[in-house]
């Protein structure tokens, strides 16, 4: 059940093993943290550190080998696949590195998808979609199909789709990984702006210090473990300090 005072996300003792040949290999080890409501957390780590797997576990797309994930006070472990899907549709928004737009739906339809899945339709949805398209500067592309868009436009559609349902938790997986620097910064500015305006809780996983610098807090994931230190919070979060931490961690 949802607890009004519960953090947006609570993770306890999270493990994920993967079988490789005859032995189990730990992808993630004993991950525990809490994300207070309205917090923008960036998790940094090199390639193969388990960032994407962690994000998928947080969104209930994968099930952990051990440990618990609570979204808005609701423990995912107790939920079947259907219930997890229902929770995801109400409370979670995903932004993917590879955009993952539905290729045969137009921009407008891709953005509207989460609301349509919730069973909403009609004028209210159309107005909300139009508002978001205007906000994201996608009005001119509204009727285009994803293959007709640039990378930056696709990712803006991805973000618009992630936020249209006003989910409590936004999970962004390397959202700038496939974008040119300018396009990437534009997308992050949008995320930051949404965070400021709507107070959404965001978990961003990235290996780019410039991206992480948009967050309220930066933590580091190395070899499947979330390090207690270094941990940058508030005014400590800036690109230079993140670079320094990475240097110290030899990443």
């Amino acid at each position: 059940m949802s607890e009004s005072n519960a953090p947006a996300l609570r993770v306890r003792g999270l493990y994920k093993f993967q079988r490789e040949r005859s032995r189990e290999v730990a992808i993630l080890k004993d991950i525990s943290f809490e994300l207070p409501r309205g917090r923008f957390l960036a998790i940094m780590g090199p390639s193969g550190s388990g960032k994407t797997t962690l994000l998928h576990l947080l969104g209930g797309l994968e099930t952990p080998s051990a440990g618990a994930v609570e979204i808005d006070g609701q423990d995912l472990a107790g939920l079947g696949e259907r219930k997890r899907a229902l929770l995801r549709r109400e409370a979670v928004g995903f932004v993917f590195q590879f955009f993952h737009l539905v290729p045969n739906l137009s921009v407008r339809e891709n953005v509207a998808l989460p609301l349509r899945i919730r069973g909403q339709s009609g004028r209210a949805v159309a107005e909300r979609v139009d508002a978001l398209l205007t906000q994201f500067g996608l009005t001119a592309q509204a009727e285009l199909l994803p293959p007709q868009l640039s990378g930056g436009e696709m990712q803006r559609v991805g973000v618009a789709r992630a936020v249209i349902g006003e989910p409590a938790l936004l999970l962004a997986d390397e959202p700038t990984g496939n974008l040119a620097t300018g396009q990437g910064e534009e997308v992050l500015r949008w995320l930051r702006r949404l965070h400021a305006e709507q107070g959404q809780s965001i978990v961003l996983v990235t290996h780019n210090p410039r991206d992480a610098a948009y967050a309220d807090e930066v933590r580091f994931l190395v070899d499947g473990s979330l390090l207690a230190e270094p941990r940058l919070v508030g005014s400590d979060v800036d690109a230079a300090k993140i670079h320094a931490c990475l240097r110290d961690l030899k990443i």
Binding site: R82, A85, L86, R88, F94, V102, L113, I117, R118, R161
Partner: peptide
């Protein structure tokens, strides 16, 4: 993608 955005 459908599943990620909440399809059961």
């Amino acid at each position: 993608i459908f599943k990620a955005v909440g399809f059961t």
